[in-house]
Amino acid sequence: MIVQDQANDFPVGPEDTSASQATQDQLHKSYRMPDEQARDPALHIAKDWVQKKKLPDMSNITDPQLRRYATLYPKLRLTSDGTLFLEEGTGDDQRLRLCVPAALIAEVIRCLHQHPLAGHLGRYRTYLQAKRRFYWPNMHKHISCAVEGCTTCRQSKERKATKQVPLGQTSTKEHTRFAKFYCDLVGPWPNARGPGTKKYLLTLQDAVTKYPEAWAITDATAENIIRVLTNEFFPRYGVGMTIVSDQGRQFISTLFQHAVKRLGVFTVKTQAYEPKTNPVERLHRTLENVIRCSMENEKVHPTQWH
């Protein structure tokens, strides 16, 4: 089946700023995809099937990659410029995933994992990014091997053996997005010294969507927190929500309590000395890993961590 080109040569859904979108744009700039697919032995034959609208007998197909494309034949689509895609979903969820030639798989994985928008996340999240816009046989295996062999991740990430426990009953009380946020501070950041240097991160995370926000601040004071909330956070999310924080002196200070009360924001304090009661603490571990990996990649000065 031949499909018409959309706004660009890779019609795969709504525009975004994800690592998969950035990788797609990079491929578009660096390669002419119909020619690259034509050089790939498996994709060259698969494109021929789609053009002729005829699939040969499966018993005559011995190559494992070709057999995989043969099973997906009803979903294979060609654009008018000759680029092969895999169609998935229906209606508003319909999207086209680019069939990646074997010669470009390593570059696609590298960009999906190491791009600044990707932040050297783990193999599962890297796979989810790849699955949004790309397809090739044995994707999960290739991505797992590449991520496990990433030198930057091995040098920068903290390795923790997590104990697997049975999943119990969890609360589903929260249903309204952006009505409740978890708030905390991270820092002081190592090597961040001197007047005016950013030493802390102020983080907030939505209780329902888990959408995070983070701002670098110079000192962990109530004045700085209020300044960020009034200039950056409240103008975008409004007021009237609930902010959950620990019992740090910044959050229990009279100044902070008076400011949020005047804005109509409710505050809730977590149990003392129990970090697990504030879910944003888990975000900090991911943020620290992403920052360390980005600093290692870009070879920046330690004071430029933000």
Rank of each mutant, 00 (worst) to 15 (best):
122 G>P: 01
105 I>W: 00
249 R>D: 00
181 F>L: 12
16 D>T: 09
245 S>I: 00
93 D>R: 07
21 Q>P: 01
155 Q>I: 02
175 H>N: 04
109 I>A: 04
69 Y>M: 02
200 Y>H: 11
155 Q>C: 03
62 T>A: 09
298 E>Y: 11
145 C>W: 12
222 A>K: 01
255 L>A: 13
70 A>H: 02
14 P>M: 12
77 R>S: 06
22 A>G: 00
31 Y>Q: 05
10 F>R: 10
166 P>A: 03
107 E>N: 13
32 R>P: 02
176 T>Y: 10
290 V>M: 15
123 R>M: 05
273 Y>V: 03
94 Q>M: 07
77 R>H: 05
24 Q>F: 02
52 K>S: 15
306 H>G: 12
213 E>R: 12
87 E>D: 09
57 D>K: 13
158 E>K: 05
261 K>P: 00
164 Q>V: 11
291 I>D: 06
253 S>L: 06
218 T>Q: 15
214 A>C: 10
51 Q>E: 14
115 H>F: 08
191 N>S: 07
172 T>I: 05
283 L>D: 03
228 V>F: 03
101 P>Y: 09
103 A>R: 09
115 H>D: 15
14 P>H: 12
273 Y>R: 10
24 Q>R: 13
196 G>R: 14
80 S>H: 06
173 K>H: 13
23 T>V: 07
291 I>H: 02
1 M>N: 07
83 T>S: 13
275 P>H: 00
24 Q>C: 13
52 K>P: 03
182 Y>Q: 04
97 R>D: 06
178 F>M: 05
97 R>Y: 04
76 L>E: 10
206 D>T: 07
57 D>Q: 11
221 T>S: 14
233 F>K: 05
268 V>Y: 10
126 T>S: 04
211 Y>C: 11
118 A>N: 06
62 T>C: 04
302 P>W: 07
128 L>K: 15
178 F>N: 05
178 F>D: 04
231 N>D: 14
63 D>Q: 08
110 R>P: 00
279 P>Y: 02
267 T>F: 02
189 W>E: 05
32 R>V: 14
179 A>F: 00
216 A>L: 11
50 V>F: 10
257 Q>D: 10
215 W>V: 13
265 V>W: 04
267 T>P: 03
298 E>H: 13
264 G>T: 00
228 V>M: 07
225 I>E: 08
42 A>Q: 13
248 G>A: 04
174 E>N: 10
206 D>G: 11
147 V>L: 01
71 T>A: 15
19 A>T: 01
288 E>R: 11
17 T>G: 14
103 A>H: 05
176 T>R: 14
100 V>K: 09
253 S>Y: 07
273 Y>N: 10
37 Q>N: 04
173 K>G: 11
201 L>E: 03
63 D>G: 01
88 E>S: 13
41 P>F: 03
2 I>R: 14
225 I>M: 09
114 Q>A: 14
227 R>T: 09
110 R>V: 03
250 Q>D: 06
25 D>R: 10
63 D>P: 00
200 Y>A: 03
104 L>Q: 09
174 E>D: 12
256 F>C: 11
213 E>N: 10
166 P>K: 04
232 E>Q: 15
235 P>W: 09
28 H>N: 10
19 A>D: 02
177 R>D: 01
21 Q>I: 07
